[in-house]
Structures are given as C-alpha cells and as structure tokens.
Nucleic acid binder design. Structure first.
Length: 197
DNA sequence: AACACGATCTACT
DNA sequence: GTAGATCGTGTTG
C-alpha cells in the first residue's frame, strides 16, 4: 500500500486520549516473514501515567514497563496469564509513561495466515480481543520496543472512517473504573465480547 | 527463594 | 456463569 500513509512520530506525541480516539479506523500492519498482515483498529483502551492505578506504570519504572517511559511511537508488548500477549502503542513525551492497548481490529490483509494461527475462529473475530489479536498476528514480547516508524510494525492512515464512537470503563481490571477509557466503534462486529455500560 | 496475581480466552455445566 | 490453563513480574523475606 501507500508508504506515505504511515503515521508520523508527531501523531503519537500527543495526549493519550486524543491518540486513542484517532487510532480507531487506522490500519495496523505487521510484516511477518515478508508478508503483510493487517487490520482496521476498532477498539482500544488508554492507560495514562503512574497516577492511573490500572496502568502498568503505576508501580513506577521497572524493567518490564520501561518502554512506556521512552519515546512515543514504539510498541509495548507484554505477557499475561501465562499464555497470552497484549500489544500497546506508546504515547506522549519521553519520561511520561502512557500507552494504548489495541483490543480489536477488523482483519484485512493476510486473513488466511491469521486463520492458520487461530484455527476455528470466525473470520471477523480473528483480531477481536487483545489476546487473540496478538495470537493471530504472531506478536510476542520479542516485538516489544519496536519503532512504529520502522518497516516491520506500523500503523497507516488510509482515510477510513468509523461508524460510531463509544466509550466505556476499561475491561478486565478492578482499579481505575472511574474512567471511560475504553473506546470502540459501536458499528463494528469485530469489537471484543463484553459491550455493557 | 518463595509467593500471589494478572490490561485473557476457552471449554464446559 | 465459572473454572482452569500457565508463567513472567514485582514484592516480600
């Protein structure tokens, strides 16, 4: 596709909620073994600073969350529950820990490859849910800390739009429930399971 | 060195 | 609706 549509560093170097809102409708691309795998982002969650109790940076700087304290526009992938990976996009200036969890996308390029990684998952749900998203794409902690302005993992603006912006509390956490920092496209059938308010 | 738990998903009742 | 899988990470001793 068009290489000039790759999002610039300045896109990520802004308030996290602004970046999160604008990430919806953009296409995330992962080049695996020279093959493009991609999907249109339809669901994200924002984790902002050490004062956000649900953010991995709440305990302060550690080996694991270090990339969140770095420059914006890098990937942060972590391992959870002994078997899943979750991918985030680092935002805001160097020194301020914040990131956006990619929770779901609508499969686009490389759907057959994704299906091979996640057999018996319906097409439109191959990238639905943070764990499945990484599983279907083949993303692991070895892909953490990658520059999203590089050629292996990046996000493109293809001018796509989303149906309807919806915000709810974040899922799967027991702290920081006072914020509506989960954003998704209410008209997409690829958004992860729980849709309650 | 030992321990409790987690930004999840699937299978099963 | 709920339990089980399965292990890196941060904390405590």
């Amino acid at each position: 596709m068009r290489r000039d549509s790759k999002l610039p560093r300045s896109f990520y170097d802004r308030p996290t909620l602004t970046v999160a809102r604008e990430l919806l409708g953009k296409h995330l691309v992962f080049v695996r073994r020279g093959v493009r795998l991609s999907g249109k982002i339809v669901e994200v969650e924002a984790y902002i600073g050490e004062d956000d109790p649900a953010c991995h940076a709440a305990p302060g700087l550690t080996r694991r969350n270090a990339v969140m304290y770095g420059r914006p526009g890098f990937s942060y992938v972590y391992f959870i529950y002994g078997m899943y990976y979750c991918m985030n996009v680092v935002t805001e200036r160097k020194g301020f820990p914040a990131a956006i969890l990619i929770r779901a996308a609508e499969p686009d390029e490389g759907i057959e490859k994704m299906a091979a990684s996640s057999p018996k998952i319906v097409r439109h749900l191959l990238l639905s849910g943070p764990g499945r998203f990484c599983r279907s794409l083949g993303l692991t902690t070895s892909h953490s800390g990658l520059d999203l302005l590089g050629d292996r993992l990046f996000i493109e603006d293809r001018g796509a739009s989303i149906g309807q912006l919806v915000s709810t509390p974040r899922i799967g956490i027991n702290k920081g429930m006072d914020h509506q920092w989960r954003l998704f496209d209410g008209s997409s059938t690829s958004v992860s399971a729980q849709r309650r308010k």
